[in-house]
Computed example of a mutant assay.
Amino acid sequence: MTINPSSGALTPGTTVDLSFTVQEPSGSSTLNDLVMSTALTSPQWSYIIYVNGNPTAPTQSAQETLDISSFLLTYKSSDDVSVGVTLAGTTPTVTQTSNQTLVQIYEEDTNGNQIGTPYIATAMVVNPADVSTAIANANAQLSQLKTDIDEKTALGVDTSAAEAQYNAAQSQITQAQALPATQYTTALNDITTATSDISNGESLLDKSWAEAEISTAQGPVNNVDTLIAFFQGNQSTANDPKLSTIINEREIAVSYISAANDFVTSGNFASARSKAEQAYTEGNQSYNDAEAFYIQVTTTWNPFGALGDIGSIFSSSVLLIGVGVVAVVLIVVGIIIYRKRSRWDELG
Results as ranks from 00 to 15, higher is better:
S6G: 10
L10T: 06
T11S: 15
V16I: 10
G27Q: 11
D33T: 09
L34W: 09
S42D: 15
Q44T: 08
Y47V: 08
I49H: 10
N52E: 08
N52W: 06
P55M: 13
I68Q: 04
K76E: 14
S82W: 08
A88G: 13
A88W: 00
A88D: 06
G89V: 03
T91K: 11
V94G: 08
V94E: 08
Q100P: 00
N113I: 05
I115K: 12
G116I: 09
P118K: 08
T122S: 12
A123L: 02
M124C: 07
M124I: 14
S132D: 13
A136V: 07
N139L: 11
A140T: 10
Q141W: 05
S143W: 02
T147K: 13
D148T: 03
G156K: 06
T159K: 07
T159F: 02
A162H: 00
Q183Y: 00
T185V: 11
L188E: 08
D190Q: 15
D190N: 15
T193G: 15
A194H: 01
T195K: 12
S196T: 12
E211L: 14
E213I: 04
I214R: 07
G219R: 08
V224L: 02
L227G: 01
I228S: 06
F230L: 10
F231R: 01
F231S: 01
F231P: 03
Q232A: 05
N234E: 10
P241I: 02
K242M: 10
L243I: 04
I246T: 00
I257K: 05
F269G: 03
Q278F: 07
T281H: 05
G283Y: 04
Q285C: 06
F293D: 01
Q296W: 13
T299S: 03
T300V: 12
N302T: 05
S315C: 02
L320A: 14
V323L: 15
V325A: 15
I331T: 14
G348L: 10
